[in-house]
Design a protein around this nucleic acid. Structure first.
Lengths: 162, 162
DNA sequence: TGCTATATTCAGTACATACTGAACATAGTG
DNA sequence: CACTATGTTCAGTATGTACTGAATATAGCA
């Protein structure tokens, strides 16, 4: 394979790794997707581990994460007992159906925390005295603000424009 | 301050920290914002460091990052030479004007990498032979796919629905 | 059913990164 | 203008997390 083609591909792979890392998704996973995205043929775990110079264990874990997101799929190659994978090339679909729901789940847990905090205040509203009463009112207002923002955010993450 | 109120607040602060951490933004920065969001009065660096039990250095760094995002603002308290900060409570505004542009900048660098890879292939298109010629065509197609997806993604990050 | 090729798991480790804290810079005050 | 209170910086470190690699599980084959 031509040196310049390899350079073009590796430049992209490196960038993809940096990008996923920057979003808290790890470097390997982005590199892995980029590698498959630039492969004309499906690749086996060993192929991928070999190309990226990482362990097979890491490839196994990350490729299954990618599969969960619908970013890669397993393909059958008859007469071969290895698992082969290829990239889903509809990138926006991956964002919309794989990555954003993943992020949404992270936000859900903060949603839960907001509700918990409201609950704590509500359950104890009888026991607050003087300046704490005032403060509890303030907290409730702020928690309501956050709840409104959170639900709007969840709607937005459904990407109505897509 | 009432124990239950502290519990409600700290529960929220902890969750905020976990959330920002999950998005690759660090834990402290989320906690800091949450702390200010739940403070009826502006707070000084020492106040914040004391409440969160973290170093003043970290507070200084993170509060300025939050300021860049428009998530907190400095307020003057006359007769006091400390800097005081309060939270911007319009959370969606912070997302739209602070955090998304921050993420957008991360994506920009991957945009650059795509262009670079195209450039490399273009500059060498004369020199490829036989099967490499075919492969370079394949790469170009894939890079075009990515470029289209990337530009649509950037549009989306402007959150037209907001 | 045992054998071999392949995939998965997970304890240990390496690595990146956010935080600490002390030294330094700065700006208010008397 | 020196003094003091406060803020910033940054080298060193602690911490969390992703990766390694060997042990284990699994699945196809003969």
């Amino acid at each position: 394979m031509d040196k310049k083609l390899i350079e073009a591909r590796d430049n992209f792979i490196e960038s993809a790794g940096r990008t996923t890392q920057g979003f808290g998704l790890g470097r390997n996973i982005g590199q892995l997707y980029a590698l498959l995205f630039f492969s004309p043929k499906p690749m086996s775990l060993d192929d991928m581990a070999g190309e990226l110079k990482v362990s097979k264990g890491s490839v196994s874990t990350n490729v299954r994460e990618l599969e969960k997101w619908g970013a890669v799929r397993e393909v059958w190659i008859k007469g071969d007992r290895k698992d082969y994978y290829e990239a889903e090339v509809n990138f926006l679909k991956i964002i919309k159906e794989g990555i954003l729901p993943f992020f949404r789940r992270k936000l859900d847990s903060s949603f839960v925390a907001t509700a918990e905090s409201k609950e704590i205040i509500h359950n104890n509203r009888k026991n607050f005295k003087s300046e704490d009463k005032e403060l509890s009112l303030f907290y409730t207002k702020r928690l309501n603000l956050i709840e409104i923002a959170q639900s709007r955010l969840l709607l937005l993450l459904r990407l109505p424009g897509l």
